[in-house]
Design a protein around this nucleic acid. Structure first.
Length: 822
RNA sequence: GCCCAGGUGGUGGAAUGGUAUACACAGAGGACUUAAAAUCCUCCGAGCUUAGCUCAUGCGGGUUCGACUCCCGCCCUGGGCACCA
C-alpha cells in the first residue's frame, strides 16, 4: 500500500530534523569557496508575513540550496529591520513599548518563515533595535562625523503634520507622506545631513563593475542625475556682486534675455530696487507659503517678478534684467538660471507670459533637402544646431560652441566647466523616539568658546560610551514642535560634556530607519562581535554579497544609501572592497486575485499561514515560483495553487511507484537535459520555467514508468529539493537513500547523453513548414535534401518551381527556397 | 515631457533568428461512481470549400531563405523621474 502525500505531517518533521542537524549553518572557517545570498530583511509589521515575502525568499532559498549542493559554503541569513513608525504609532495609541510590539511581531514572522522550510542560518539572526546592533550603527555615524561627512543645516524640510516629523525627499510621494498619505508641508529645522553627494560620481561610475539588472542601474543613474555644463558669472550692475548660473547650453548665451533667481536665493533680497521692493517681497512671501508640493502641482504655470536690477551678459556686455521666479529650483545649480526663451521651453513660457524679448541664436542645421523655417514657430527650438547672432561664434555647431565659449569664459575668469548632480544630501535626522539616538552631545560652554565641531560645541559621544541607549519612556507623543519625544526626558538629555565635563545636553534627534539597513549585511558575517563592527578577516572572506535580491522600490533609497555607506567604510579601511553587492535582482509584487494591491481595507489579503495549512509549504513555494516571471508583478490565483498541489501528488505517487533498477537510455537522456535546464534557469532567475521543466519531465516519465530507475529518481529528487525541499527529503528517505537529500552533491549533466539519436527534421518551403520527418540527428545535408525532395508533400509544393537555394541547420531543419519557373 | 519595462489563446505565460502558443489554469466530452468530490483519458487560437489550406504574437513598414525575436515609425499598458536649466 502506497502512502498518501501528506505535507502537514512531513513538513514540520523535516524542519525540525534540519534544524537539529544544523545543515544550513554557514561555516566561518572553511576552505570551500563562499557564496553569500541575501534577501532584504523584513520590517516585522503587525500584519505578519506577506505572500510577497514568500515569493522572493523562496526564490533565493532555491538559489542558496543549489549553491550549497554545488559545494559552496553558503551564507543565507535573516534578521529584522525593526525600527520604524508603525511600532511607535502603536505605542502612542496603546502605551505599549515599541520593543514589546516588535518582539511579538518577530515571533510571528519567525514562526511563519520557519513553516516554509527556508534554509536560513538562524544562528546569525540580527535585530536593528538591539543596542548591541545599533551600537555599531552609531559607531558608523561617528566615523562619518569624524570624517566630515555630516553637517547640520537649517533648511526647509518636508514636514508631515500627521506624523509630526520631518521626511526625506524620498519619503514624499506626490507631495504626500509616504507612510500616512497626509499632505506634506514645508518647515525650517536644523537637520543632520550626510554628504552622499560627495560620493555621487563614484556611485555612478562603480556601477560598471557590478552585475545589477540594467533597469536598476539606469534608475540609479537617473536619480543621481549627472549633467555636464558650465557656471557663468553675470556681474550685477552697480554692485560688486555677481550671479552664478549653471547651464548645459552655454552655446545659447547670446540669446539670454533675463536671469531668473529662485525666491529662496539670498541674493534676491539684496538686489531689489526701491520701487519694486513691495512687489518682490510679496512674491517671495507668497512662494514661501506654497509648499514645494504645491509648486509642482501648479505644474508648468510660470510666475515671476522683476527686481528692478540688471546684470551683465559676460559674452556681449549686454544689460540683462534680473527676475525672480519660483520655477527655478533653489537647491540645484545655485538657484539661478539664465533665461533663453528661444531655446528652452520653460523660459519660453515665462517670457511669453511677461512679454519678455526673445532672441534666436541657434539655427537648425539645414539639410539640403528639407528647409526648416522656425520663424513664427510657437515653441522653443531646443535641439543642437548652428550659432547665429552670436558674434565671433557665429557658424559654429552647438557642440563646438559649448567648448569654445566655456574656454573663453575660463580665460577671462567669468565662468568654468562644471558638473551638477540632482542627488541631494541625505536628511538624516528624525524627530522620533523609535530610532537610533544620534550619538552627539551639545555643550553650550564649549560653543561659547567656539570649540567642538564647527565651533558650535558639538562633541561625539566617546566610542567607549556606545551604545547611546534609548531610554525607557511612558510618553511617546511627538512634541509637535519639531523636537523628538526624547527631548522631554531630562534625565536622559542632561549629560556631562565629554570635553569640558560641564553640563551638556544630548542630541535628541534619532536616525531614519534607513540607517540600520545600510550596513546589516556586514553584521551577519559576525553578528555577536562586541569589539568591532565585524571581524576584518571574516569580512574579507564573505564580502561582497554574491546575490542580493529585493524590491524595485528600494533602488533609489536603501540600495543607494547602503552603497554609499559601504564605500565610506571602504575608504576608512573597514570594508574590503568598494561595492557591497556583486549581483542585484528584483522581484515583482504579488497582487491580490483582483489585480489590486493586497490590503486590509480591500479585504483581499492572502495569508500564507492559511495556504500552508490547506495545501502545504511545498505547494506554496512551487506555486509562487511558477506563477510568472520573477521580476514581474503578478496576481494571485487560487486555482493555480490547486494545480501545483496536484502536481506534487502526482510526483509523490509516481516516485513511490517506480521500481526499475536502471533507467532506459531515453529516460536518462531526458534527465540530463533536465539537469542542464534547471542549472541554467536557476542562475538566470527563471524560476517559472524551472517548475515547468519539472512538470514536463514528470509528464514524460509517467508514460515511461517502467523505464525509470533508482539512478534517475536519485538525481531528480536532488534537483527538485531547492524548490520543494520537504517532499524531496521525504521521498529521498522513503526510496532508501542515505543522508539528507539537501546535502547531496548537485548532479552534473553528461552532454553526450543529452544528444538525441533521432530528431524530427522540419522541412520548409520558403520558410513555411510543409513536412516533418524523423531522421538520425547527425544526418548530412545531402541525405536530408534527398529525403526532402522525395517527400510526397514536398513534391506537391515544388511542382513547376525551381529550387534555387537550400538552407540546412543540422538536426533541426531544411529550408527549400523555391521560385516559379519562367 | 523624459527614462525604463512590456503588448502572444478564454486566463497566467513559453519560445532571444529556425516547428508560435511549451507548462499550467479555466472550459468541453468521456471513464470510474447509486451520486458527488477526487482521479484518469481525449479535445481545446480563429476561419474555411476541413485527407488539407489560409490567417493570427498591438499597428504600419523594412532586413532575412526564415522574424514574437533584429531595424525604422506609430499606438497602447505598467513602473520610475519630473520646472534639475
Amino acid at each position: 500500500m502506497v502512502l498518501k502525500y501528506n505535507p502537514g505531517k512531513i513538513e514540520s518533521k523535516w524542519q525540525k530534523i534540519w534544524e537539529k542537524g544544523k545543515v544550513f549553518q554557514a561555516k566561518d572557517k572553511s576552505k570551500r569557496p563562499k557564496f553569500y545570498v541575501l534577501i532584504e530583511f523584513p520590517y516585522p509589521s503587525g500584519e505578519g508575513l506577506h505572500v510577497g515575502h514568500v515569493r522572493s525568499y523562496t526564490a533565493l532559498d532555491a538559489v542558496a540550496r543549489k549553491k550549497r549542493m554545488e559545494g559552496f559554503n553558503v551564507l543565507f541569513p535573516i534578521g529584522w529591520d525593526a525600527f520604524g513608525l508603525p511600532a511607535e504609532n502603536y505605542a502612542i495609541k496603546t502605551g505599549i513599548h515599541p520593543s514589546v510590539t516588535v518582539k511579538k511581531n518577530i515571533a510571528t514572522f519567525k514562526r511563519q518563515l520557519k513553516s516554509l522550510g527556508l534554509s536560513f542560518d538562524w544562528q546569525r539572526e540580527i535585530n536593528t533595535t538591539d543596542p548591541k546592533y545599533y551600537k555599531w550603527t552609531q559607531w558608523i555615524f561617528l566615523k562619518l562625523f569624524e570624517n566630515g561627512l555630516t553637517y547640520k543645516k537649517r533648511m526647509p524640510i518636508n514636514w508631515c503634520p500627521s506624523c509630526k516629523t520631518g521626511l526625506a525627499n524620498e519619503e514624499v510621494v506626490n507631495g504626500k507622506c509616504e507612510r500616512c498619505g497626509t499632505q506634506g508641508e514645508q518647515k525650517e529645522k536644523e537637520q543632520w545631513m550626510l554628504k552622499i553627494t560627495k560620493y555621487a560620481d563614484r556611485l555612478i561610475k562603480d556601477l560598471d563593475n557590478v552585475n545589477y539588472l540594467e533597469k536598476i542601474k539606469t534608475q540609479q543613474i537617473n536619480w543621481i542625475g549627472k549633467s555636464f555644463g558650465a557656471e557663468v558669472d553675470f556681474k550685477i550692475e552697480n554692485s560688486e556682486k555677481k550671479i552664478t548660473v549653471f547651464t548645459t547650453r552655454v552655446d545659447t548665451i547670446f540669446g539670454v534675455t533675463a536671469v531668473v533667481l529662485a525666491p529662496e536665493n539670498p541674493l534676491a533680497l539684496e538686489i531689489i530696487t526701491k520701487e519694486n521692493e513691495a512687489k518682490v517681497k510679496e512674491y517671495i512671501k507668497q512662494s514661501k507659503l506654497k509648499s514645494e508640493f504645491e509648486r509642482i502641482e501648479l505644474e508648468k504655470e510660470k510666475t515671476g517678478v522683476f527686481t528692478g536690477s540688471y546684470c551683465i551678459n559676460p559674452l556681449n556686455g549686454g544689460k540683462v534684467p534680473i527676475w525672480i521666479g519660483d520655477y527655478v529650483v533653489a537647491t540645484y545649480g545655485g538657484g539661478a538660471v539664465m533665461m533663453v526663451p528661444a531655446h528652452d521651453s520653460r523660459d519660453y513660457k515665462f517670457a511669453k507670459r511677461y512679454n519678455l524679448p526673445m532672441r534666436e541664436v541657434i539655427a537648425p542645421q539645414i539639410d539640403t533637402d528639407k528647409k526648416t523655417d522656425l520663424h513664427g514657430c510657437e515653441m522653443a527650438y531646443e535641439e543642437y544646431g548652428v550659432l547665429i547672432n552670436s558674434g565671433e561664434f557665429n557658424g559654429l555647431k552647438s557642440e563646438e560652441a559649448i567648448e569654445k565659449i566655456t574656454k573663453w569664459l575660463e580665460l577671462n575668469s567669468l565662468g568654468k566647466k562644471t558638473i551638477q548632480y540632482k542627488l541631494r544630501d541625505w536628511v538624516f535626522s528624525r524627530q522620533h523616539y523609535w530610532g537610533e539616538p544620534i550619538p552627539i552631545v551639545h555643550c553650550e560652554k564649549c560653543a561659547h568658546l567656539r570649540q567642538g565641531y564647527g565651533g558650535q560645541g558639538m562633541w561625539p559621544v566617546p566610542e567607549k560610551d556606545l551604545p547611546v541607549k534609548l531610554p525607557f519612556v511612558k510618553n511617546y507623543q511627538p512634541t509637535g514642535t519639531g523636537e523628538s519625544p526624547l527631548s522631554a526626558i531630562s534625565k536622559w538629555v542632561n549629560v556631562k560634556c565629554p570635553k569640558c565635563k560641564g553640563s551638556a545636553k544630548r542630541e535628541t534627534d534619532t536616525m531614519p530607519n534607513w540607517a540600520g539597513s545600510s550596513w546589516y549585511f556586514m553584521r551577519y558575517i559576525d553578528p555577536k562581535n562586541n569589539k568591532e563592527l565585524t571581524d576584518s578577516a571574516k569580512l574579507k572572506y564573505w564580502m561582497p554579497v554574491d546575490w542580493y535580491n529585493g524590491g524595485m522600490e528600494h533602488t533609489t533609497l536603501h540600495l543607494l544609501y547602503s552603497r554609499f555607506w559601504y564605500k565610506f567604510l571602504y575608504d576608512i579601511k573597514v570594508a574590503p572592497q568598494s561595492e557591497p553587492y556583486a549581483k542585484r535582482t528584483s522581484h515583482g509584487m504579488v497582487l491580490a486575485e483582483d489585480s489590486r494591491k493586497m490590503s486590509k481595507s480591500w479585504g483581499n489579503v492572502v495569508n500564507p499561514d492559511n495556504i500552508v495549512k490547506e495545501y502545504g509549504a511545498d505547494t506554496l513555494r512551487l506555486y509562487e515560483m511558477f506563477m510568472g516571471p520573477f521580476d514581474q508583478a503578478i496576481a494571485w490565483n487560487t486555482q493555480g495553487i490547486k494545480g501545483c498541489r496536484r502536481f506534487l501528488e502526482r510526483f509523490w505517487d509516481l516516485i513511490l511507484g517506480c521500481n526499475s533498477k536502471k533507467s532506459s537510455k531515453e529516460v536518462e537522456s531526458a534527465l540530463n537535459r533536465l539537469i542542464k535546464k534547471i542549472g541554467s534557469y536557476l542562475e538566470a532567475a527563471k524560476f517559472n520555467t524551472s517548475v515547468a521543466a519539472f512538470m514536463e519531465f514528470l509528464n514524460f516519465i509517467s508514460s515511461h514508468q517502467n523505464e525509470v530507475g533508482k539512478d534517475t529518481i536519485e538525481k531528480l529528487l536532488i534537483l527538485f529539493s531547492p524548490f520543494a525541499p520537504h517532499i524531496s527529503e521525504e521521498l529521498w528517505k522513503q526510496a532508501g537513500f542515505k543522508g539528507f537529500c539537501c546535502e547531496q552533491e548537485w548532479p552534473k549533466y553528461d552532454s553526450e547523453l543529452i544528444k538525441r539519436e533521432r530528431v524530427l527534421l522540419i522541412i520548409q518551403i520558403n520558410g513555411s513548414v510543409r513536412d516533418k520527418i524523423e531522421v538520425d540527428s547527425d544526418i548530412t545535408q545531402k541525405e536530408a535534401e534527398k529525403l526532402a525532395l522525395n517527400s510526397e508533400k514536398i513534391k506537391k509544393w515544388i511542382e513547376g518551381k525551381e529550387v534555387k537555394k537550400i538552407i540546412f541547420i543540422l538536426g533541426k531543419l531544411i529550408n527549400l527556397v523555391a521560385i516559379d519557373k519562367r
